[in-house]
Design a binder for these strands. Structure first.
Lengths: 241, 241
DNA sequence: CAGTGGTCTAGACCACGCC
DNA sequence: GCGTGGTCTAGACCACTGC
């Protein structure tokens, strides 16, 4: 603290200071922090500024606050991970490419209809893509979108956009939810051919359901990935940004 | 607004109000919001209260603010997913059980040593667990922890704790990062036996690396999951908490 | 009851973007 | 220069917890 002359905001310095104490073990999980009023007096800053700093720590999951009781050092819990689907786990996004295989208007088959909560046979837009890394095919993706009258899909959208973003552009509705299911399957013949490998080898199946308001399913993406060539990577944000 | 008599905080009402406008399409991605001062006048509240409300929207990724320019409706982007590893994707956590197979002190083999950034042959604590759902074995997990003098591992910790939490308790260091890699593999004979199935069928391989400060790897968990019995599910937080 | 966090105000000054 | 968001203050009142 004290260094009021710094360019770093005071509430940020307070947060760093407390964070140091927590990470060094001076404040252990479950311990109570000084009250906001006390912290304000200690550091010579106003309560609102203290709260601003504590909010940072709470956002990082380092502390928890309870009205009427106090603020406490949280128990470590890093089981929430951020899975970045846009990057698909590679550090070299420039090596990515995708090839559009087909766009069709189809009648929904039972499995897809179930997931999209529509009647089997309803018209859907389907498009198939091949994902390439370094020119090598690594995954086949099938996307299904609920059909919207007078909303033609532009190829560019499909090629470059994120799936939720593409759904949002097509339906004109901001997507609100997203559920991904990951499982392991054996590669079937049609996909194996596209991936230039043999059928039967292990593959990752990544299903992504995009929801709009009122939990209405708007789109479904099913991606079959070559198990050896393709990995999904997720990481927590580090406490040190 | 107006309903100042409500129990809902004013800043929350402001956030809901703007959120409605955004989700209804009244404010489109890229549009500028009224300035904080203007919003304060419109709603008859102070600037700090306005900022409190805008902070909520920013946290949800609905708006972005730029000093000197203004606040703008963000472009939808739901490609970041929260993967909850503690729950392992089931809605019925009560059906979970785990069986400890073995705890050993071993010398690190090359693959593990590489990931933990230690010299091959260094002493490690290894423990193997079997994960059961409804009494059925669905996954085998191998955990490796860097050996800490005078820090015996308690069986309870292993059985119930989250991996990052277990690491934190054992090392006495708060874990700071977490990286998970998911890939598809073929089930090998030893795991197949434990999972009471045949080798060669597809399986999910989930590797979790836990880091401490200065990006020091503290622990490694390798989980082999039955591809058909086990799915990983991730979802975005909905805008409507 | 006293102490806590949660909300809110009406000002102030600053750093930045833009004209 | 003016308008913007970002920081900060010194108060106030409320809702809640726990004694």
């Amino acid at each position: 603290m004290k260094t009021r002359e710094s360019f770093v905001p005071v509430y940020f310095q307070l947060a760093e200071d407390l964070k140091e104490k927590i990470l060094a073990g001076e404040l252990k999980p479950g311990d109570a922090l000084p009250s906001e009023t006390q912290l304000g007096e200690q550091y010579g800053i106003s309560k609102m500024t203290v709260r601003n700093g504590l909010r940072l720590l709470a956002q990082e999951g380092l502390i928890e606050s309870f009205r009427g009781k106090g603020s406490f050092v949280a128990h470590p819990n890093l089981s929430e991970l951020i899975l970045n689907l846009a990057g698909h786990g590679s550090e070299n996004p420039q090596d990515y490419d995708s090839k559009l295989l087909a766009i069709n208007v189809i009648a929904a088959e039972d499995g897809v209809a179930l997931r999209l909560q529509i009647k089997p046979g309803t018209k859907l837009i389907q498009f198939r893509r091949l994902l390439l890394i370094d020119g090598e095919p690594v995954a086949v993706e099938n996307r299904y979108l609920t059909y919207q009258r007078g909303k033609p899909l532009v190829e560019q959208e499909i090629k470059y956009a994120d799936f939720p973003e593409a759904v949002a552009r097509h339906t004109g509705i901001i997507t609100e939810g997203n559920q991904v299911t990951i499982s392991a399957v054996s590669l079937h013949q049609p996909e194996a051919e596209l991936l230039e490998t043999s059928s039967g080898i292990p593959a990752l199946k990544v299903e992504q359901l995009v929801y709009g308001r009122q939990n209405t399913p708007l789109g479904l993406s099913i991606m079959i990935c070559h198990g050896e060539k393709y990995h999904l990577i997720a990481s927590t944000r580090s406490f040190f940004g």
